[in-house]
């Protein structure tokens, strides 16, 4: 049986299914916030404070009060049933940690690219990455207070996305909104499951 996850049987024969979903986007776009809004955050000791050296690398224009940066991954857990668990991994927002992406992406069901319309170009690399690897993804626009609203179609043109690729508005702080983002991704994965493989 094939699906975007792993299974194992325990002594009672129950399959244990773990599904991996990726959350990508630029630095400070709200990945950790979204994971925290919808799932049980499980700490991995992989964050480091923003040091002076990395502050030179990280652009914090328009991103106030961010004092730590993710060096490995954000990790959220949603237990849907005893034997069915979703794992959310935020991909590192900085290009210097991109070597970790290739590990994260193996076996992933799909991805959410979180975008901030103030810094839309920050999500170009993530979109490019998933397109090249034929990983199903959707784009979620995190509507920050004070950020100018753009229409979904404006964003689609700006990001050069296919007409069929879902783009949704969200508030990464809201549990309901974060749920809708995940539901939109799963629906998208279901819809492309029928399509012939393009390569």
């Amino acid at each position: 049986m094939a699906y975007g996850g792993y299974e194992a049987e325990d002594s009672t024969g129950t399959r244990h299914r773990a599904i991996k979903i990726l959350l990508a986007g630029g630095f400070g776009v709200g990945k950790t916030t979204l994971v925290g809004a919808v799932s049980e955050i499980r700490p991995l000791r992989t964050e480091e404070p923003l040091t002076q050296s990395s502050a030179l690398v990280d652009s914090t224009v328009g991103v106030e009060r961010k004092t730590t940066t993710t060096v490995a991954m954000d990790f959220g857990r949603i237990t849907l049933r005893d034997d069915l668990v979703l794992y959310l991994f935020g991909t590192p927002g900085q290009e210097r940690f991109w070597f970790m992406w290739d590990e994260l992406v193996v076996g992933a069901l799909g991805a959410v690219v979180l975008a901030d319309t103030r810094r839309l170009a920050d999500c170009f690399p993530a979109i490019d990455y998933f397109e090249r690897r034929d990983i199903p993804f959707i784009v979620a626009l995190n509507c920050f207070e004070g950020s100018r609203r753009y229409s979904v179609e404006d964003v689609r043109v700006a990001l050069d996305l296919d007409p069929g690729l879902p783009i949704i508005l969200c508030d990464a702080r809201s549990r309901e909104s974060a749920k809708e983002v995940l539901i939109a991704l799963i629906e998208h994965v279901l819809s492309v499951a029928d399509e012939p493989v393009s390569r």
Binding site: A2, Y3, D134, A193, V197
Partner: peptide, 9 residues
């Protein structure tokens, strides 16, 4: 991903 088990989804 395109061979995903739909029942699981």
């Amino acid at each position: 991903a395109r061979q995903v088990d739909k029942n699981t989804l």
